[in-house]
């Protein structure tokens, strides 16, 4: 199966080790990745989707045309990119006038969009296309003995009819099963489905409250679980959940919050035997406690 890799901006710019992990694991699991040359911003919800429909959809259309030209679907890791592209495509598919307008805007650039390429999240591909059982069968180094908790990307859950692939957006199972496939024990806790709070303008507009909001989640993790690590599947979750821990530690004046955060693809790469230096080297919260036990 061939998929067109949509990287977004944060992953290649700030966390290329995640990109490395995806590029390493996908072929092992039978997915051939092709690059999206000349792709542009997804666009981020705070950008064109916040100014006008035309620029949003034109930008989505630009990107979708790349996958369409390659004749395959997009695979996306970043939650926002996934959601924005998917909503953009949905708009065009449901509104013929919008689709026409986008093609009108694209025409001088030599591009067209029909909607034939779908937008898929990397966790959907892993969960639905490959499956936890296949993944478990490929594991070379197990996470056995480690406890983890999972962070579902909101953007892959809601609204379920547009972005969802879980049987239930309100009681998702995918991430849990994927992490369990690597041998780890996944602990449950009260705020499992609480948003990390990292996306959008919340952190920017009221950082105090946003940190406080995130604190409730981390306190619940510490109080209610034996988590050795947090598995996420979105670049914003990854970066935010690390940064927040450091901020919180500064506030409380001790190293209370120090749970390593991994993108699931990084954990997968590690379990498939790839070099941690390549696939999990960039972090703001030390991962040694986990890496030493794999």
């Amino acid at each position: 199966m061939e998929l067109c890799l949509f990287l977004g901006c944060n992953t290649p710019a700030i966390r290329p080790d995640v990109e490395r992990a995806i590029r390493a694991t996908m072929p092992v699991l039978g997915i051939d990745l092709v690059d999206s040359d000349n792709y542009v911003c997804c666009p981020a919800f705070g950008a064109f989707p916040s100014t006008d429909i035309d620029s949003w959809l034109a930008t989505s259309g630009w990107n979708l045309s790349i996958a369409e030209e390659k004749g395959c679907d997009f695979v996306v890791q970043c939650g926002s990119c996934y959601s924005s592209l998917r909503m953009g495509r949905e708009h065009m598919m449901h509104h013929a006038d919008k689709m026409a307008r986008v093609n009108e805007l694209l025409e001088p650039t030599g591009r067209t969009v029909t909607g034939k390429s779908k937008v898929r999240h990397v966790s959907e591909v892993l969960y639905k296309e490959i499956g936890p059982e296949t993944i478990a069968g490929q594991v070379k180094k197990s996470l056995k003995g480690l406890h983890g908790i999972v962070q579902y990307p909101c953007h892959t859950l809601f609204p379920s009819e547009v972005v969802g692939f879980e049987e239930s957006a309100r009681a998702p199972k995918g991430m849990r099963q994927l992490v369990e496939a690597l041998g780890a024990t996944v602990d449950s806790y009260s705020r499992e489905l609480q948003c990390c709070g990292g996306a959008g303008g919340f952190m920017k507009s009221t950082p105090e409250q946003a940190i406080e909001f995130a604190k409730t989640k981390f306190d619940a993790i510490l109080d209610e679980t034996k988590a050795d690590f947090i598995a996420v599947s979105c670049i914003t979750c990854l970066m935010h959940m690390e940064n927040v821990q450091n901020t919180l530690n500064k506030r409380v004046g001790e190293e209370r919050y120090k749970i390593p955060v991994f993108d699931y693809n990084q954990l997968l790469a590690l379990c498939l035997g790839f070099d941690p230096k390549q696939v999990a080297s960039i972090c703001n919260v030390s991962r040694d406690s986990v890496l030493s036990r794999i």
């Binding site: 309100r170 806790y189 009260s190 705020r191 489905l193 109080d223 209610e224």
Partner: peptide, 12 residues
């Protein structure tokens, strides 16, 4: 919007 189950069984 929903109920959160806490370890002591209380429902937040």
């Amino acid at each position: 919007q929903g109920v959160m189950l806490k370890p002591d069984g209380s429902l937040e």
